[in-house]
Design a protein around this nucleic acid. Structure first.
Lengths: 268, 268
DNA sequence: CCAGTATTCAAACACCCGTTTGAATTGAGC
DNA sequence: GCTCAATTCAAACGGGTGTTTGAATACTGG
């Protein structure tokens, strides 16, 4: 339309959004200050408040922009498949492709920020901040309802409660894989460690396997809580292991003003 | 080398650790201040520095205490199973029980703080803070190596790279389930929504199903919707959704022309 | 009992945060 | 050219942060 490709005022707004997204995923929401963001965006601090109103509103704007794209892709794909199926229910794999496959496609888009956003989203999924949680839930609701229904129809013989649990688990697996933190250095050195295109086929077959796993036995034979005479509970209670004092012992024999190990802290 | 267990001064230390753990899981590491912690623990701010040296060192201490318990349980159980098997490799299910089952048992312990700690751990697994990440990796290394080896032995025919990926996915599913945030309000209203004893059997069969899923097709490494040959229904298979380039020229992603009109909220 | 260390405490320090202000700058329409 | 609104800017405000200080207290060994 009449929107010139480079409107200067709109540019500041977009630069701030981009900088915020990149810094949020690298340092976390709390640890990223508006001053860091505006410095990265070559903008003034007050400009951020002028365009967004507050830091929380800026966070909202970042997620709204990313989720609009993601959710539109998901719903478009789901509707396309349902239209092609013509009334008959989809296969479980198709539902997963529409939900998780599109997310992974978006995560592979490094240029337009899809990569950063999906990592950010993956990490934020387990953020305790109430304001974020309610916002995410609201922004997601339509998509979640649509895909829940599609999965119910695809697996009519599975109890709905069980399907919801498994959707929950699948979400966790994807979020963690996308977040790409690998806190345990598990995949360190693996090829394509943080490349969503390498992860996608592996994740999809893992998710399908989990979704179609046999239901947990009602008699709880599978359950760990009552493995015969409690495998782990054999020693009944966990004794406190001897306090590992190798590194922390300094903190109790302190004289005044003793910093245990001054060489800590960074990344904030 | 240690102080007697019931010395009153040691009590302050424990009270601070407990309060910190509870507040960390409710508000996050960054959003929890030392003043909040010491107020909850009925202690002085300086006492926290006296006993731990810094906030980062306090965070370390919280995780060290919890991980010592968790990792000891895991290793004990793994060794018990390996001893019982007498040289022959364990079954995949047994390895998962020793790793994830023990975590879920610990998470069910509400009295001694196991519940809070496992939720905290689940959320921290995707924390971007570098200091936390390296600390967790170091603290976990022995356990990770042991369980990786056990899984390799249990699944000799599966490529090791694939096993590592699936271990990664399983960790994500468990972390997210334990974190118990449910950002999407997926399981809202479900029975035992945040009770690890209700989650355990369901999670275990999901994980086993994912771990034993058929390997992803080797041929196409890039494609998301792979399965070039083995599609279940030959009729309508999922094509690659059209590359979403509409956004580049799209001017409707975010409603432009937002007047400043702040009206924000603060909920922190 | 006293000596001396281990622990607590209130107060202050320097710094960074999100937010606000009011003036300067820009750019389009008459 | 001028007007007027939209946008940017440097500077400041109040408040919360982690950390430090030095004195007061609690406790243990002799």
């Amino acid at each position: 339309m009449d929107l010139a490709p480079s409107r200067p005022e709109a540019d500041t707004r977009r630069r701030i959004l981009d900088a915020a997204q990149g810094l949020f995923v690298r340092h976390g929401l709390d640890a990223t200050s508006l001053r860091m963001i505006t410095a990265h965006a070559s903008a003034n601090i007050a400009a951020a408040h002028y365009h967004f109103g507050s830091k929380d509103a800026l966070i909202e704007a970042v997620f709204r922009r990313g989720l609009a794209r993601l959710n539109e892709m998901r719903l478009t794909e789901l509707e396309r498949l349902e239209r092609a199926a013509g009334g008959s229910p989809l296969k479980p794999r198709q539902v997963l492709e529409a939900f998780f496959g599109t997310a992974l496609i978006l995560a592979a888009d490094r240029d337009q920020g899809g990569f950063d956003f999906m990592r950010l989203l993956g990490r934020t999924m387990s953020d305790p901040n109430q304001f974020i949680r309610t916002f995410l839930a609201a922004e997601y609701q339509e998509v979640v309802d649509r895909f829940k229904s599609a999965l119910f129809a695809a697996l009519p013989e599975v109890p709905r409660e069980e399907i919801i649990w498994r959707l929950h688990f699948m979400l966790g697996a994807m979020s963690y894989a996308l977040a790409g933190t690998d806190a345990l250095r598990l995949a360190a050195g693996l090829a394509g460690e943080d490349d969503p295109r390498a992860i996608a086929p592996r994740l999809m077959s893992f998710l399908l396997g989990g979704l179609r796993a046999p239901l947990p036995g009602k008699s709880a034979e599978v359950s760990i809580s009552d493995t015969p005479t409690s495998s782990v509970g054999a020693n009944r209670r966990i004794d406190k292991p001897p306090r590992q004092t190798a590194r922390a012992s300094g903190s109790k024999t302190v004289a005044r003003g003793n910093p245990p190990a001054p060489g800590h802290r960074s990344s904030k």
